[in-house]
């Protein structure tokens, strides 16, 4: 993400960027459970039915040098339009068309979510579970951190 690009984003773009990331990263099962519990059935038109493809993932030489093409990753994208006219899109890693559709619908509804209700019911809990999973992995790794100690030898007084 280029810093120059980031700084020019509006508050609503930043919010949208954030929820699209959370919804894409959360395991599909969790997302569908949380989504189903909300019992939302918006009317919509498919602008781009869920479609599977590849994106070429770029990394940097030495981690911070020039970008290079590393390997492809499967990705599913989707776009819908609510009857109100709001466009919802999704770009999610993997090949789960249902997930892509759910994220696109959620994206459209979240744009109309002026009272932050859907944000609270959907994005906040899912983000918390992502954080919990990350914390658990970090705790596992932390257990394996080496605690160096030096053997004191007799020569020095």
């Amino acid at each position: 993400m280029s810093a120059a690009n980031q700084t020019t984003l509006t508050a609503s773009q930043l919010a949208r960027q954030h929820w699209l990331g959370v919804l894409a990263k959360v395991p599909a099962e969790q997302l569908q459970q949380q989504w189903a519990a909300l019992d939302l059935t918006p009317d919509y038109q498919l602008i781009r039915p869920p479609e599977i493809g590849l994106t070429m993932v770029r990394a940097r030489v030495g981690g911070s040098g020039q970008p290079f093409n590393m390997a492809e990753m499967t990705i599913t994208r989707c776009a819908i339009r609510l009857t109100s006219g709001t466009l919802g899109v999704s770009y999610v890693a993997g090949r789960d068309k249902r997930k892509a559709l759910t994220v696109a619908l959620a994206d459209a509804l979240l744009q109309e979510d002026t009272d932050q209700q859907l944000q609270q019911q959907l994005v906040v809990p899912l983000e918390a579970s992502l954080q919990a999973a990350a914390d658990a992995r970090a705790a596992d790794a932390s257990q394996t951190k080496v605690d160096f100690f030096t053997l004191v030898r007799g020569e020095d007084e």
């Binding site: 039915p49 339009r81 466009l87």
Partner: peptide, 13 residues
């Protein structure tokens, strides 16, 4: 302009 987008193929392939 996202408000101008129309539907593509129903079944792209």
């Amino acid at each position: 302009s996202s408000e101008l987008l129309v539907a593509g193929f129903n079944d792209a392939v």
